[in-house]
Amino acid sequence: MMRRPPRLSMRAQKSLLGLLFTLPFILGFGAFLAYPFVQSIIFSLSKLTIVPTGYELDFVGFENYRHALFVDPRFRQVFAETAVTMLTQIPVILIFSFFAANLLNQKFPGRALARVIFFLPVVMGAEITLKMQQADYMQQAMSLSESGLIPLSVLQSFLVNLKLPLGFVNFIFEAVNAVPVIIRSSGIQILIFLAALQSIPGSLYEAAHMEGATSWEAFWKITFPMISPLLLVNVVYTIVDSFTAPDNVLLDLIKDTAWSGAGFGVSTAMSWIYFLLIIGLLVLTFVFVSRGVHYET
């Protein structure tokens, strides 16, 4: 029984190599994602107490979820805020980065410098820096919206005077307020769109031009369909990027709850509610975006 076959078949050898090369990930996924993921389900249904030899779990059912949703004074508000921010920011980031990519794709003097600056937030997006800017009263007092660059109060009263619905005015207000955040979170997305724009063969535009298409038509009939597959990539990246974003208030709340609040159990319950939101968003995007996407085959 100990006799080994002298050589593995080619197929088996290849399988083995594939397994060998990807083994680190399989181990890591098991140890640092799958196992903690299962644990987080258990934790969210238990009361967790630290004891000298480790920690103990007492099953409490959905008590932690109830606590997060109905007892915690901040969770519901912060959760709603986060959901609304994500729902509004994702489309705005997409539109802005698409627009910026179109700008940067044109030929003009100083284009290289403009690209360097547009991408700077990705490199400089140190979480601590952004966090501290939020806490820094001096920066706050002089922040864009107050320094007169975009006088928000004037804008708001103007819009209210136009008798626009208040919800719409608030949307505009929030959007303008979020301009620096949007620009800062769009670096990678701009690059993705830019690369897509550059991959469109120029001959398509030439042919359309010969047939008498205007630039407007060429944009909607060529540029937009050619770029649409990357919409999904950009939405997913935007969502993933927001997980650890410094202005993710829900993340702060989950952290605070774990270490100085209602405890680990409630904190994991909160993160599970957050995860359901993310899943919902992703499903929504897949349904909406995949309907309109044009795939070149």
Partner: peptide, 8 residues
């Protein structure tokens, strides 16, 4: 999200 597995 890394928050999911943060506590465990």
């Amino acid at each position: 999200p890394p928050q999911m597995v943060m506590v465990p």
